[in-house]
């Protein structure tokens, strides 16, 4: 079984190929994370996702320059194209 999986994954983008039609987690520049169903990708890691939930992780700083507890802003989008230059990583979710 493991040999079969290793044979299918011979280059990094193969793990993205195996995630087509599946839920994926993506970490983005600007303290953003995204989960969604993967429908398309290319070599630049441009992707198209559906049923997307985006989280923006924000640390506010008060007037004394002291960072406050981190907060998360969330939003849902039905269909989204993500440009590849902002992508840090993509991972299949179980």
């Amino acid at each position: 079984m493991e040999d079969a999986v290793n044979a299918t994954i011979s280059e990094p983008l193969d793990i993205v190929k195996l995630s087509l039609g599946e839920r994926v987690f993506m970490k983005m520049r600007g303290d953003r994370t995204i989960t969604g169903t993967l429908h398309a990708y290319d070599a630049h890691m441009n992707v198209v996702l559906s049923n997307v939930e985006e989280s923006i992780h924000i640390v506010d700083v008060n007037e004394d320059g002291i960072p406050q507890a981190p907060r998360v802003e969330r939003r849902s989008l039905e269909m989204l194209f993500v440009r590849g230059d902002g992508v840090i990583l993509l991972s299949p979710t179980q």
């Binding site: 087509l20 039609g21 169903t37 429908h39 398309a40 198209v48 559906s50 989008l77 039905e78 269909m79 989204l80 194209f81 993500v82 440009r83 902002g86």
Partner: peptide, 16 residues
């Protein structure tokens, strides 16, 4: 950064 669109504008099976 992103392009948002309506889900009905996209044929996901065709795209995959």
């Amino acid at each position: 950064r992103y392009v948002r669109m309506a889900a009905r504008a996209v044929d996901t099976t065709l795209l995959e």
